[in-house]
């Protein structure tokens, strides 16, 4: 019974001595793509690996001084690898006038059509997800998450804007095109549900004018796993 407790002497010096002459890395005949002595990935058996993602969410376009937009949107993302994903998203906006705009319209006679508003927009994005991590919550449970960068191409439907005395109706309904750099955070609730927060700067161009609202969105995502 006590001999269980001895460590195998075969682990002893013999093997080390025999391997002295060359500093050749030991590699098994078969094994995972990355082998023991090769450079290893930081995380093995990654718990949260997503493939298809469906999302719904709310958001806000908070920086326009004349109106605040609230978004209701959804989308789909295909996570090609742990590092890269492509995504399609669309959002409908509810715009609310600010006090400043009310003043301008009511006290200074500015026409409502002077102020451009985004009605809805759609985007195609590429996501780069270099940071994956875990945090200890109260030393009891773990919160897994990732940080990613996004680059999007956007098409938006705008209304109003640039009304003048000669063109009192403004530019009316029109399409705007542009791009949106940004970043996002995802926190995993469980293996199939996650919450993501996206921060994107929409750079839109429409009929000679630029519109640069900031979009903050919070989405609930349902995901399928790539390893199942």
């Amino acid at each position: 019974m006590r001999r269980w407790l001895r460590m195998k002497t075969r682990l002893g010096l013999l093997a080390a001595l025999l391997l002295t002459p060359t500093a050749v890395a030991a590699k098994p005949a078969k094994g995972p793509a990355w082998e023991e002595s090769d450079k290893l990935p930081a995380v093995q058996n990654r718990l949260y690996r997503v493939e298809h993602e469906f999302q719904v969410g709310l958001g806000v376009l908070p920086v326009d001084a004349f109106s605040k937009g609230f978004t209701l949107g959804g989308g789909y993302a295909w996570h090609i690898t742990d590092l890269w994903a492509v995504e399609l998203r669309a959002a409908y906006l509810l715009n609310f006038k600010t006090a400043l705009r009310d003043k301008l319209e009511n006290n200074f006679g500015e026409p409502p059509s002077k102020f451009a508003e985004i009605r809805l927009y759609g985007e195609v994005s590429a996501l780069f997800k270099p940071i994956y991590g875990k945090l200890s919550l109260l030393n009891k449970t773990l919160v897994y998450g990732e940080i990613y960068l996004s680059a999007s191409a956007i098409v938006a439907r705008l209304n109003g804007g640039s009304a003048t005395d000669d063109e009192p109706q403004g530019k009316g309904d029109r399409l705007g095109f542009g791009g949106a750099p940004g970043f996002g955070l995802r926190g995993y609730l469980n293996r199939y549900l996650s919450l993501r927060f996206d921060f994107r700067y929409l750079l839109l161009y429409s009929r000679g004018e630029g519109h640069y609202p900031l979009a903050l969105t919070l989405n609930l995502a349902i995901t399928t796993r790539s390893d199942l």
């Binding site: 990935p41 930081a42 093995q44 058996n45 200890s136 109260l138 009891k140």
Partner: peptide
């Protein structure tokens, strides 16, 4: 017992192996 807060941070093992 795992304290709520301590100088040591506890990560409960969940089947994911962080190489470090």
């Amino acid at each position: 017992k795992v304290p709520v807060s301590s100088e040591r941070v506890y990560y409960k093992f969940g089947g994911e192996y962080w190489t470090d």
